[in-house]
Design a protein around this nucleic acid. Structure first.
Lengths: 196, 196
DNA sequence: CACTCATGTTAATCTAGTTTAACTTCATTT
DNA sequence: AAATGAAGTTAAACTAGATTAACATGAGTG
């Protein structure tokens, strides 16, 4: 029960139910790995060969555009998935980088064993469908927010939705996530303080 | 072979392979329906009870914000899916409206028969997973575009990616889809013409 | 034919957010 | 204790895009 993969098992069991035996098969098909702060789990241009579940630590997923500008797509902390699902699913080169913002420990689902795992534990097919569905819902809602909310409102939403992340991640990365400059986020924050 | 649902069967067969028998079961679980221009397939606040495949016509999916402003999320034409997947999947009230921009004929997948259909034709489970995966990839790429591209570049991308839609849909709705005002899109277009 | 009504254009003014650049804070290294 | 460097702040000048409003076009329709 004190195995380090337990948070992953718990996470999966909140969505589908695994038998003891299925848990064992699952555990045999995955690995845990530690990364140091600054290390990359995935680099832009590489095919995403693993889907990762964060046991401890924090990562950022970002994208470098033609001008070399960094755009943060998401952060991941304990109990979150991180990977470029698009690249993982289609096994095509990734648009994204995943880099650790802290020393980070993850469970890795390698793509090679993924199909085999789904065959041996078919209930995982439903599990993966469900997490992809959730990711889709979240992504669609983000499109809507970006289209219909001001920078200030997006920040307030972020702060409310992810209070733990705001405390762990430097402000200039949050600005990037929100699609604004760090200077403007600083201005928004000082306005919010003024107003009270 | 000249049944009107054929485009749907073809679409599915491009992703998974259905036997004759599976096709028959599928056909018995779906309905086709016509809508007139202006009619709604789905209204904001209702639970999305059907997933729709467009046989003929054109729809817009949009969202009304607190100020009553309309934000177009997507257009769908022949051979596209249209529905609020988030609402359909989770059976919670939808954030979106789906309205027909032309007289439109669709195939409807009712949610009630959805589970039964998946049981009887298990290969459809994979089919739905794949189309959700595609939707996720598309949605994530759109987030990136909205964060990293100017309005002008988003328009050029749209024009290149969806030339057929541009011809069928009024310009002010395209502006809304791009997240800009119709006046600004008009300005962008006249600038593009000037430059040549 | 004249009259709507929906769509698109142009131009002036305005504002949310960017850019640039100088300065502050604070933790880490030497 | 000085020095370096990463993170954050402030403020002035600037720009992409919004707003407002007047006008243009064109396809129905009475």
């Amino acid at each position: 029960m004190s195995r380090k993969e337990q948070p992953l098992i718990d996470y999966i069991n909140r969505i589908v139910e695994l038998s003891e035996e299925e848990e064992q098969i699952l555990l045999s098909g995955i690995k845990t790995r530690r990364y140091l702060k600054g290390q990359y789990i995935l680099q832009q241009g590489d095919v995403c060969s693993v889907s990762a579940f964060v046991l401890k630590g924090c990562t950022k997923t970002f994208y470098l555009d033609d001008q070399g500008q960094e755009h943060v797509i998401m952060f991941s902390i304990e109990d979150w998935w991180t990977s470029d699902l698009a690249s993982f699913i289609t096994q095509t080169p990734s648009d994204f980088n995943v880099q650790c913002l802290e020393n980070t420990e993850v469970v890795l689902f390698p793509y090679e064993t993924h199909d085999k795992l789904l065959e041996e534990v078919p209930i995982l097919e439903r599990f993966f469908r469900k997490i992809i569905e959730r990711a889709l819902v979240a992504s669609q809602k983000r499109v809507v927010r970006n289209l219909s909310m001001s920078a200030r409102d997006r920040y307030l939403y972020f702060r409310k939705q992810y209070p733990l992340i705001e405390q762990r991640v430097p402000q200039y990365l949050i600005a990037s996530y929100l699609g604004i400059t760090k200077e403007f986020l600083s201005k928004i924050k000082s306005q919010l303080i003024q107003e009270q």
